[in-house]
Write a protein that binds this DNA or RNA. Structure first.
Lengths: 227, 227
DNA sequence: GCCATGTTTCGACGCGGAACGAAGCGATAC
DNA sequence: GTATCGCTTCGTTCCGCGTCGAAACATGGC
């Protein structure tokens, strides 16, 4: 048994205090810039850069360049699972913040080009993921049979959206939430539908969006937007 | 944010190649002496001793002194879970490795702490699901009346397994197959039974498992493990 | 009593890698 | 254009920790 087990390299990556501090910050599921992570881990930017390179190299983190910022986030939920598994062995446990925060109001809901963004957009897509209406790929979401059924209930024509030339169900990174929401043709069709049904209302001359009482009821019936 | 995350220390422990080799050996669920572990990790006894001390200190290993030997084993199935979670991250980047690699015996059939994993473990649980002996929940399986009958034929005491403090029929994610197999107390009881009946055999010093001719016949009679 | 075996403690060596300063690159702002 | 900001690359220093030799400490067999 001369070959070192494959988990050793991952353990070594997670074992360094600086990298661990970065991963703990990213454990909230949002995307952070390199500079923010350097600050969170209390090291200089060049040190942080070296660590982030290793983590990306090992596919623990994904990175998206935006202007002169580079946004890093956990590459998949498997990474969060591994951190959690290690934490179980330690005395204190990590708590996934987006799971415990149930009752926070939908602040900062807004549109992003032609689809929903902000807390509302992110919560909505996460509800859909939790209910297995969508599955998550690298750059896009896929619609499951359950998702097709839900969209049919809302009278959204999935196939029409799919046939358009623009991408179908793109993952769009939200710069305030630092999380993904649903863009593409499907995101636009969904937003259009929710406004048409008056579940959502947009104040004139503003991108801010609010949920109407009608929408409250509708989302509740579909088991969306709730913990 | 000066405090280093608690998982960092665990990660550092699992990240060292020598300690990882020891844990890999102990992953078969059996107890090994300090000398055997030194040999497995290819280091001198005094080096192994230092590592084992750290692992015991961190509650990753349990130790029992017997004469002039000291027997080490994994402290709990949580440790095996953590190793499994890290292995998933380590193999994830490869392009669907669970499809191309049938050749390696570890992928085919192995023990995962104290239950069966690999192709064998996955096939077995899927046979049981297909025959409605088990049903699948989010985190665990449930035993149906048909399943209870089958387990009784194998002289497995389901109620004894259920009454233990550890989880009963947990779904354990397999790092090579990327599918679930049967863990928990029931998984352990089933593996124990199949080894006791000599349906399965484990080569000394390896986690690889093979099906004996006796097992071939037995599985066929129970309509298990066949397509 | 003796010696052999299994394991731990102590001390010293040496390598790997984390850290930062300085400099370079690219993008945005003015 | 110039200035500034965010990030990365290069080169160097330095500390931590894994490693082994030597020796001590057990336990069991004789």
């Amino acid at each position: 048994m001369h070959a070192t087990p494959n988990f050793a390299s991952i353990g070594a990556l997670l074992g360094d205090p600086t990298r661990a501090a970065m991963l703990e910050a990213l454990y909230d599921g949002r995307a952070w810039t390199a500079g923010e992570l350097a600050q969170a881990a209390n090291v200089t930017p060049q040190t942080a850069s070296a660590h982030l390179q290793k983590l990306v190299q090992a596919n623990l983190l994904a990175v998206a360049a935006q202007g002169r910022h580079r946004y890093f986030r956990l590459a998949s939920s498997d990474v969060a699972d591994a951190l959690e598994a290690l934490s179980i062995l330690a005395t204190r446990r990590l708590v996934r913040p987006w799971l415990r925060s149930g009752a926070e109001p939908l602040h900062h809901a807004r549109t992003c080009y032609d689809h929903l963004a902000g807390t509302l957009g992110v919560s909505l897509v996460e509800s859909l993921l939790r209910q297995r209406c969508l599955t998550e790929g690298d750059d896009a979401y896929s619609v499951t049979p359950a998702g097709r059924a839900l969209l049919r209930r809302l009278d959204i024509d999935v196939e029409a959206a799919r046939s358009r030339r623009r991408s179908f169900a793109r993952k769009c990174l939200d710069w305030s939430e630092r999380r993904y929401h649903l863009g593409g043709a499907l995101g636009a069709a969904l937003a259009e539908c929710l406004f048409a049904r008056k579940w959502l209302r947009q104040a004139a001359g503003s991108r801010a969006v609010s949920v109407t009482p009608l929408g409250e009821r509708g989302f509740r019936e579909l088991n969306l937007l709730q913990e």
